[in-house]
Simulated assay, not measured.
Amino acid sequence: MRIDLSGRTALVTGSTQGIGAAIARGLGGSGARVGVNGRSEDRVLRAIEKLGREVPGGDFVPVVADATTEEGAAHAAERLPELDILVNNLGIFGSQPALEISDTEWRRYFDVNVLSAVRLTRTFLPGMTRRGRGRVQYIASDSAVVVPAEMIHYGMSKTALLAVSRGFAKEAAGTGVTVNCVMAGPTHTGGVEDFVYSLVDRELPWPEAQRAFMREYRPQSLLQRLIEPEEIAHMCVYLASDFASATTGGAVRVDGGYVDSILP
């Protein structure tokens, strides 16, 4: 399957590293013009420099903005006024005992993981529907349906994204715009390495630490390893393409079989 996104413009929030950077690389490698987003100009420019080496000839645009604010959404719209592909990847995560999560933290997880995506969808979806073409994606998680006891505030935010995605898919019904959630499983990123070591012995070498984490905290995984960011990106690139024109309102799993269900 050869995916050609030439002539399409995309924005991937939180794309200076990890899954976001992998998605930006995948979209750019398929010919899309890609807005690389982060709050720090230095980090965005360094990410674009790295992406340029990985995708020779790729068209990557810096979008230095705090995507959790109204001002950030407005700036993104100024930089990329006619967007074809919006990937709401920005998110925070961490572990905390359930009864110790403060009101402030509950609100922070909702604001960053959910409301930022809602705001950007409100910003860009009208233009997509008006042009009769577009793709909106939300990076959710297996935690949306298998809520980890050590991070229920994170699970809550990802469950909310499933409802947000389905609702906006209905808003876009019949317009040629598709809206989907990508449910990522436990994924190998720098941030996740720190998270793993917060739960297992820090003296363990990484291969052993990863196995210990999966065995103790994610035993449901059929893959029995962490997913690589590129594996999430492959699904996002597919959903951004014309091949996925009949896929909308869905929660598409790239979870390594973590969710124990035969339904998507």
Rank of each mutant, 00 (worst) to 15 (best):
63 V>W: 00
15 S>K: 01
185 G>P: 07
203 E>V: 08
232 I>M: 06
6 S>K: 14
77 A>W: 04
148 P>Y: 07
221 S>F: 06
154 Y>K: 13
98 A>H: 12
144 A>C: 12
38 G>Y: 00
100 E>Q: 15
262 I>M: 13
12 V>C: 01
40 S>R: 14
264 P>R: 13
243 F>Q: 15
238 Y>V: 11
153 H>P: 09
230 E>W: 08
122 R>W: 06
112 V>I: 14
178 T>F: 07
231 E>T: 05
42 D>L: 12
108 R>H: 12
208 E>R: 14
75 H>A: 12
229 P>S: 08
156 M>K: 10
236 C>Y: 00
143 S>P: 10
46 R>C: 07
200 V>D: 05
33 R>D: 00
130 R>P: 06
155 G>F: 07
87 V>Y: 00
191 G>W: 08
48 I>A: 02
109 Y>F: 15
205 P>W: 07
56 P>G: 03
164 V>S: 09
264 P>F: 11
231 E>Q: 15
226 L>I: 10
38 G>H: 00
246 A>N: 12
106 W>V: 13
173 A>R: 13
83 L>C: 02
34 V>I: 01
164 V>N: 09
169 A>M: 06
145 V>L: 12
250 G>N: 11
104 T>H: 10
250 G>K: 05
29 G>E: 04
3 I>G: 06
133 R>H: 12
181 C>E: 08
62 P>G: 03
111 D>A: 12
133 R>N: 08
32 A>H: 01
259 V>C: 13
136 V>A: 05
126 P>M: 06
173 A>E: 14
13 T>M: 09
204 L>Y: 08
139 I>V: 15
123 T>N: 02
180 N>L: 09
131 R>A: 15
119 R>I: 13
125 L>H: 05
126 P>V: 11
69 T>I: 04
200 V>P: 07
213 F>Y: 15
171 E>V: 15
48 I>C: 06
81 P>Q: 07
134 G>H: 03
36 V>M: 01
18 G>H: 05
63 V>M: 11
225 R>I: 04
89 N>H: 02
149 A>G: 04
97 P>R: 14
58 G>L: 05
252 V>A: 05
201 D>N: 15
18 G>I: 00
41 E>N: 11
223 L>Q: 13
48 I>D: 01
135 R>P: 00
182 V>R: 00
43 R>A: 10
224 Q>M: 05
230 E>P: 03
239 L>E: 01
18 G>Y: 01
166 R>N: 09
249 G>E: 03
188 H>F: 07
